[in-house]
Design a protein around this nucleic acid. Structure first.
Lengths: 189, 189
DNA sequence: CCAAAAACCAAGCAAGCGCTAGATTTAATA
DNA sequence: TATTAAATCTAGCGCTTGCTTGGTTTTTGG
């Protein structure tokens, strides 16, 4: 048993756990359900993770890492404030809806984390929000947005995160369409 | 033991349950914790409710009922589309943040409901969303809002519901301030 | 003031929970 | 092929869970 193992097998297991946690919630998902879905016995799970809560932490961490990566990537080489906002919004919806399981878990199950796990994740969340804040501040600086800027960030992220509640991946709208619509709604089209 | 009892005592118990469910989540809250907080023994709980899940259902139902009441009340006698939108937004934030426990539970714990409980609650949610849709459609009809109208409803409700994640009741901003800010953000100030 | 109903308690059951320990199999390395 | 390490299984422990049962206290209404 190793600590914070990053093997490929572990990544697979985390992805399966994300699906179950997303579908039924962390607390309702038992280690036996997880093990079944992974094709192993429940005891074997604890070779890869020290305890159940560490699986939850891994799910959320994986989701946040990819969100940060994609956001950084989207902003790279983009200078115009309006285009930066749209790029960030598109990136956000893209991860949120493609890597949906992990993000639903991150949004809904963080209360089940212990304080020690929370520390790392809060840092990542803060970095991510700061990315957004910077982009919104830049828009405000050139007169594209008006009003309390942290509040705008919260409204925007709220609107975007809520999409996991209703978005139908089989529908006609793409994540980019949604980002476009949000831009238009707040006068940034 | 009665079915769907509506006694005053039951209302108290539901309100206490709302607090615990909000603080720690439904699944992590045991019937013993509930009973302790209510000042009774765990067995006595099942005199008022048939099972634990019925408590959750009651919490959410109470929250939705008061939300619907307050929304109806806010729209009464208001004709101007823009003013109707603002009234609805203010009403929404007012219930959401005053009756916070129940609404956090409604937003975060509905997955723990059984199908039979879900039916009633989904009806109420649909009625509530239709209220919003009508107001937004009216705004669009007079040219105050542009774009996909159901999408606007979802963005708006997402932004508003997300406030439970960060709003500080002891802060300087009132729910009405927030509604005002949202109105300005989408060009409805 | 007394009977009926409502609210509650004491005790505990059966099932399921997270997790552990030790043995065994599979895979990697030299 | 021999040695080691990683991954899995078997079996189950100790505890908590939601809930039940049968009896007691409290409240209510005529």
């Amino acid at each position: 048993m190793t600590l914070t193992n990053n093997s490929k097998r572990r990544k697979e297991l985390v992805s399966i756990a994300a699906r179950l946690f997303c579908e039924q919630g962390y607390e309702r998902t038992t280690v036996r359900m997880l093990a079944d879905a992974m094709g192993i016995k429940s005891g074997s799970l604890f070779h890869h993770f020290n305890d159940k809560q560490e699986i939850l932490c891994a799910v959320i961490q994986d989701g946040m890492e990819s969100a940060l990566e994609i956001a950084d990537q989207a902003l790279e080489g983009e200078a115009d404030p309006k285009r930066r906002f749209m790029a960030l919004a598109k990136a956000h919806l893209s991860t949120l809806l493609n890597d949906r399981n992990a993000h639903v878990v991150a949004l809904y199950e963080w209360r089940s984390l212990t304080d020690s796990s929370l520390g790392v994740l809060i840092d990542m969340r803060d970095r991510y929000e700061q990315l957004w804040q910077q982009v919104i501040d830049d828009c405000a600086a050139v007169g594209l947005l008006h009003g309390d800027q942290p509040l705008i960030r919260r409204f925007a992220l709220g609107a975007l995160n809520w999409t996991v509640q209703w978005y139908d991946a089989g529908g006609e709208k793409t994540p980019d369409d949604l980002a476009q619509a949000l831009g238009e709604l707040i006068g940034l089209s």
